[in-house]
Amino acid sequence: MRLSDLKSNEFGVIKEVLEHHLSAKLIEFGVIPGAQFAILNKAPFKGPIFIEIDNNRIALRRKEAAFIIVE
């Protein structure tokens, strides 16, 4: 399952970050395999996603969230 498929208030664990232009940056922001996360908010009209990951709050676009495999 991809992070972008989840709904607001759902949570899970990061499984893998697929290789793309942003993968190094995502790791820096703490999106690391094994990290626990929860979706706090999804902006309307397919806007960005607001997640809490390892007690850290970050926002990213759905396009990028599609590269993050979760379970």
């Binding site: 232009h21 940056k25 922001f29 607001f50 709050r57 970050i58 926002a59 990213l60 396009k63 990028e64």
Partner: peptide, 12 residues
Amino acid sequence: TYKSYLLMEMPE
């Protein structure tokens, strides 16, 4: 040009 993205910290 390059791919655009948004990735940012949301402060308390």
